[in-house]
Amino acid sequence: MAGTDRETGVYEVDGSAEGPTAVLIGGMHGNEINGYRVAAAATDWGIDAGRLVVVPLANIVAIERNAREGPGGDLNRQFPGGRDLETDLARAIWGVVEDADPDVVIDLHRSRGLFETHPRWVGQAIFPTRAGGAVEDAEHVIDAMNDRYVPSTMRFHRFAMGNVQDDDRDSGLLVQKVHLELGVAGFLAELTEFLLDLETQLRWTTAITELLLERHGIRRIA
């Protein structure tokens, strides 16, 4: 969206060998700091193979306001399946995703509470698509996060499997559209801010991103 107040960067990180393509998106909601900071950091990563296309500050107006929604409302409800997209920004983001021809799409988020503990919130969960073996990948990453990162004293913060994204054309979620129209693996990764400091949120979001990319043949290197 060059030349508008919603203009934001798209970055490409290339590995030294041929490999799959991943799209990483942060900042869909402007107050979810972990997502856009980890995505922004990923623009400077090295990867061993393949290609990583990053939109770190997707909803730049909302980020500047530290607000969940920008002028067009909730951006992650503007991607209905099989229909025209609802805003110029959603169309621009979807254009980046389609042009990348990805093997996997990762959308980074953060909630205020815990999945299946606080009825209004969905934190500490990964929501995979049905396509592309994403359910098995999510199970693997959830187990790894709970084994390696979540202390035994924080059992309520253990990661869980979120609802599988498959045939709901009306949710408006980006990963749902990824499933319906591209038929590839997609993940909506939700951290929580509930009793977690920002540095822990960043560390865990980074770990989830790296683990999901590794499952698809893209490994971060120094």
Rank of each mutant, 00 (worst) to 15 (best):
N146Q: 06
G123I: 02
N146K: 13
H109E: 04
N76D: 15
T129P: 07
Y149L: 12
D147S: 11
D99S: 09
H157C: 02
G133D: 07
V97I: 11
G133M: 11
G123Y: 09
F156K: 15
A58V: 15
P128A: 04
P56E: 15
V96E: 03
A144T: 14
W94F: 03
A67G: 04
E64G: 10
L89T: 10
A131T: 11
V96D: 12
V96G: 00
A58T: 13
D107T: 01
H157D: 08
W94M: 03
G70Y: 13
M145V: 13
V55P: 10
Y149S: 04
V135F: 08
H140C: 01
H157R: 07
L114C: 09
D74M: 04
P80A: 02
G81M: 04
R65E: 15
P80Y: 13
R155F: 05
N163C: 00
G95M: 00
N59V: 03
L114P: 11
R83H: 12
E86T: 09
R65Y: 09
A134C: 05
A125Q: 11
P128E: 06
I142H: 07
G162F: 14
I126K: 03
R148A: 05
A67L: 04
G72F: 10
E86S: 12
T129G: 04
N146P: 04
A125T: 12
V61I: 08
A131D: 13
G132E: 04
D137C: 01
S152F: 14
H157W: 12
T153D: 07
N163I: 08
F127W: 15
R120G: 04
G123P: 08
G73A: 03
D101E: 12
G132Y: 10
A90I: 02
W94G: 03
Q124V: 04
P102L: 03
R130K: 13
D143N: 09
D107C: 00
R77I: 01
H109W: 11
R130C: 07
D84S: 12
A144P: 08
H118D: 13
E86C: 00
G70N: 06
E86A: 01
L75Q: 08
P151A: 00
S111P: 00
G81N: 06
D143F: 03
H118G: 00
N76E: 12
D137H: 15
E139I: 04
A131I: 05
I142W: 10
D137F: 01
